[in-house]
C-alpha cells in the first residue's frame, strides 16, 4: 500500500508535507510521509504506539527538525522559527502546565508568549469555552487530571492558531470534557482552522476527520483524503497495524 497518497490539492493549504523523515540515530521514527491539509480540514491519525505519530506532530510543531524531506506550515518552510510556531496550537496528553500557577495565569502566560498584549478577554474566552472559568484562579495542582487537560486545551487555543496539533487530546477528559473538546474542534474547523488529531479512539477521530491515515513504523500504511474516507473499514486496518507492530 502506498504511503504517499495525495489529498488532492486543497484550496488554501495550511500544511504541506513531502517525503518527511525524522530519525533518532539509526531509527527512523518518521520515514517518508507525504500529505497536505487545507483550511478547515482535519486529519485523524491512527496507529500503534511507537508508529511515529507524536514525532510527526513534534516536527510540525517546530519542536524537532526534519532529517529529510520538507514540511510547510502556512507557507513557511519548517523549521521556520517563531513565525511558523505562532500559527500552531499544540495539545498533548502532557498538559504542559505549571502546577504552582493558576489556570488563568497559565493561559495568560501563554497568551503573552504569543504576543497578545491585552490578553484578559482572550484568556477568559478561552477558559470559558472549556468550562474552566469558575476554577480559573485555582492552582493547577488542585485540579483533577481532566480539568488540567481542559486548561491545557484553553492554553493551546488562546492565540487562535491556524493549525491545531492534538496528540491524544481526549486523554483524561470525562464525557462532558470530551464533548466540549469535540464541539470546540468542530467550531475551529468551521472557522477555517486545520487540525491534525492523533487518537486511539477511532470513533472520535473519524467523527471529526475529513482525512484519515493509519501510521505504522513511520509510514502511512493507509491514507484517505476527504472524499474517500471509508469509516467502516478503518477498524480492521487499525487492528492490522497494531498487530503488525507487535
Amino acid at each position: 500500500m502506498s504511503s504517499t497518497l495525495s489529498a488532492g490539492g486543497p484550496a488554501r493549504p495550511i500544511v504541506v508535507v513531502a517525503e518527511l523523515a525524522r530519525a533518532f540515530g539509526a531509527r527512523r521514527a518518521v520515514a517518508g510521509v507525504t500529505f497536505s491539509l487545507g483550511a478547515g480540514e482535519c486529519l485523524a491519525l491512527f496507529g500503534p504506539n511507537g508508529a511515529g505519530k507524536t514525532t510527526l506532530l513534534r516536527v510540525l510543531a517546530g519542536l524537532l527538525r526534519p532529517t529529510s524531506g520538507s514540511a510547510r506550515v502556512c507557507g513557511i518552510e519548517l523549521p521556520g522559527g517563531g513565525l511558523a510556531r505562532s500559527r500552531v496550537g499544540l495539545i498533548s496528553h502532557h498538559t504542559m502546565l505549571y502546577e504552582a500557577l493558576s489556570s488563568r495565569e497559565n493561559v495568560s502566560f501563554s497568551a503573552r508568549l504569543y504576543g497578545i498584549r491585552d490578553s484578559r478577554a482572550r484568556v477568559e474566552d478561552s477558559l470559558r469555552r472549556m468550562s474552566m472559568l469558575e476554577r480559573a484562579d485555582a492552582p493547577v495542582r488542585s485540579l483533577s487530571r481532566g480539568m488540567q487537560q481542559r486548561v491545557s486545551i484553553a492554553r493551546a487555543m488562546v492565540h487562535s492558531p491556524q493549525l491545531v496539533l492534538a496528540d491524544e487530546p481526549y486523554s483524561g477528559l470525562d464525557e462532558s470534557g470530551a464533548r466540549a473538546l469535540t464541539s470546540l474542534l468542530q467550531e475551529l474547523r468551521s472557522a477555517g482552522t486545520a487540525i491534525i488529531i492523533v487518537t486511539h479512539n477511532l470513533a472520535e477521530g473519524l467523527s471529526l476527520a475529513t482525512h484519515a491515515a493509519v501510521m505504522q513504523r513511520g509510514k502511512f500504511v493507509r491514507y484517505d483524503a476527504a472524499d474517500r474516507v471509508n469509516v467502516a473499514s478503518y477498524p480492521a486496518t487499525y487492528r492490522d497495524a497494531v498487530a503488525a507492530s507487535g
Partner: peptide
C-alpha cells in the same frame, strides 16, 4: 526542573519566542 513537570518545556519551545 519546573519545566520538566508535565513537559511544560514543550509549551515554551512550541511558542514563537526565541
Amino acid at each position: 526542573g519546573v519545566e520538566a513537570e508535565d513537559h511544560a518545556i514543550d509549551g515554551l519551545l512550541a511558542s514563537p519566542v526565541s
